[in-house]
Design a protein around this nucleic acid. Structure first.
Lengths: 208, 208
DNA sequence: CCGCATCCGTTTCGATACTG
DNA sequence: CAGTATCGAAACGGATGCGG
C-alpha cells in the first residue's frame, strides 16, 4: 500500500494537516498532477485519506488523513529520525519546508525527562515561517501553540535549527556568530539541545 | 532513498539476516533480476547494504545490512505494526513466509511488563518452518534461540499464529479446535496473547 | 485560480531468455 | 548461482487544456 513512489511523502505532508491538491503539488517537488491524482484516489480507496469540500466561501477540496492514515505517524517519525543521520550538513539547493521541521523536532523530541523549559521557535526559510513550541519536562512535546509562556524565543533558519538541535553547534556560539537570534533567557538556551534525541551523523559517510 | 518500489521490502528481508541474490528474488514476489540488481547496487552505493563473498567452499555472494541499514529496524517495525491492522483475516493466496513472523512478533512484542513465560513457537507454512522463542517478563523479546527452557511449545500455521497473538482467537480454544498444537504447560498458553501489543483490526474496513 | 484530464517523449518495470 | 540482455507494457514528468 505504501511502497510506491510519492505515497509516503504524501502521507508526511498530510500529517501536518489537511491540504489542497495544489498545496501538495507545490510541496512535492517534481510530482506530476496525474500521479498525484492517482495516488490520492488510491489512498482514498484504501481508507487512509478522506476528501472534503470546505464550506463556502472557501469551497475548495481538501485531503485529510483518516484514523488509519494518522496511525502511520510513528512509522513516519521513525523514518524521519533515521533520515536525520544524512541531513548534516544541509546540501545546497536542498529545499526543506519550515513546517517539515515541526515533524522533525517532534520525531526527535526526547521522550524521557528533559529540562523543564519552554522554547518558542520561529523557523524561517525562503519567506516562509513555522512557529512552534518545544516543551521540556518529564515528557517532551512539540506543539504549534501553547498557553505556557516561552522562556526563550529563538529565530533561526532551517539549517541553523538542525545544527543546534543536533548538538553539532552550541546554541550560545550560534547566537554569538549571528546564526540564530534569541530573546528572553539566554542562559536557558544552552539546554535546548537536551530536549532532543538525535542520532549524530558520522562525519565520514554522506551518500548521494 | 527508500521511496522506490521494492527498496523497503529488500531492507525487510535483510533485517532477517544476510541473503543471496536468488534468496531475495525468491522471497520478493514479482521482482525482476534487473530491478533487484539495480536496487542492490544503489543500496550499496548509499551505504545501507554491503556485499560479501563467502569463503570457500560456499563462495557465493551475500548481501547484508550495514549499520546504517540496520538502523532502519525501528521504522520497519512501525510499518509492520501499522500493517497488522489489515492482516485479519489472512486472504487466500496471500503468501506469508514463516520467518516474516519473526519480525512481526518482535515488532509487536509488548515492551512493558508481561507474564514471565517462555514460549517456543514453531510456525509452519508450505513446508517451511520458523522456530522462535517469545520471552515475557519485565521486557519482552523475541529471539531465534535461547538458553531458557520453554514452558510450552506451540506448533501453528501462519494464520493461526496471527489469530492467536492478536487475541482474535483464544489459545485454548484454538488448541481444542486443532488449529494449533501445544506441548508442555497448557495453562500457560492462555497468557500468550498478553506478550503482544497488537492493534486490533476493526472488522469494518478491509481495503483491497 | 483550482482540480484535474489528456497527450507525449522518456524512463522504468516485469517476464523471459540467456551467459559466465 | 548471479547476474545481463532484451523487449513489450506500464508508469512517469512536463506541458497544455478546460470546466467550475
Amino acid at each position: 500500500m505504501l511502497g510506491e513512489r510519492w505515497t509516503l511523502l504524501i502521507v508526511r505532508e498530510l500529517l501536518l494537516g489537511p491540504k489542497r491538491f495544489s498545496d501538495l503539488r507545490a510541496r512535492l517537488d517534481g510530482i506530476s498532477p496525474s500521479v498525484l491524482t492517482e495516488r490520492l484516489t488510491r489512498l482514498e480507496q484504501l481508507g487512509l485519506v478522506g476528501r472534503f469540500t470546505l464550506p463556502p466561501p472557501a469551497a475548495s477540496t481538501v485531503y485529510e488523513l483518516t484514523d488509519h492514515g494518522r496511525a502511520l505517524r510513528p512509522a513516519v517519525f521513525e523514518l524521519i529520525r533515521w533520515g536525520g543521520r544524512f541531513l548534516h550538513p544541509v546540501r545546497k539547493g536542498e529545499r526543506i519546508e519550515p513546517d517539515w521541521m515541526l515533524l522533525a523536532l517532534d520525531a526527535c523530541a526526547r521522550r524521557g525527562p528533559s529540562p523543564p523549559r519552554t522554547f518558542q521557535l520561529r523557523i524561517r526559510d525562503q519567506g516562509k515561517e513555522a512557529i512552534l513550541y518545544v516543551i521540556g519536562g518529564p515528557s517532551g512535546t512539540v506543539v504549534t501553540d501553547t498557553h505556557a509562556a516561552a522562556e526563550v524565543t529563538i529565530v533561526a533558519s532551517v539549517p541553523a535549527t538542525l545544527s543546534v538541535m543536533s548538538g553539532a553547534m552550541d546554541p550560545l556560539e550560534a547566537l554569538k556568530a549571528g546564526r540564530i537570534k534569541a530573546t528572553g533567557d539566554h542562559a536557558a538556551l544552552a539546554e535546548f539541545p537536551q530536549l532532543f534525541d538525535v542520532v549524530r551523523p558520522e562525519p565520514q559517510k554522506r551518500p548521494a
